[in-house]
Amino acid sequence: MKCCDTMDSETKREIIMEHYTNPLNRDTIDDPKYIKINSNSETCIDNLDIYVLFNNNIIEDIHFNGEACAISTSAASIMTRLLKNKTIKEVKELINEYKDMIETGKEYDRLEEALVYSDIYKQQNRKGCAIIPWLGIEKAIAEYEKAK
């Protein structure tokens, strides 16, 4: 799914709320083939477990679970869809672009639906929430690469 370049704030809000109320891939995975990462932050109370299945340098599947706010939950939901079936190389690039968007507001087309967070940089107290699930993926990749 591709998002238009200029999303108005109401559309962004609707997408975030939809992913918050009906998150995708929100469940606990009990399968040793998945790498499990806990991602939380010092500054907020979000606490997510991320489950990632790698196969031959490709992310084949992502799930998440935990207690988190609307921003963090929706960001995890959107991320699970966006990163699925992408190579580690692509995912690393997307992580950098996403982080840059959260810090500066710069929009990258490849972030597709995750562009709903392009205004988050204006809210200091929410930046951490938007980034938490992505930090989990970053850690999962590091673990996968270390184990190889």
Partner: peptide, 22 residues
Amino acid sequence: GIFSQDVAVYLNKYGICVRAGN
């Protein structure tokens, strides 16, 4: 149905300071 932190962020918009968390 609303996470505590979201409530705290909402109240902050009205200049109200409350704590969310454990």
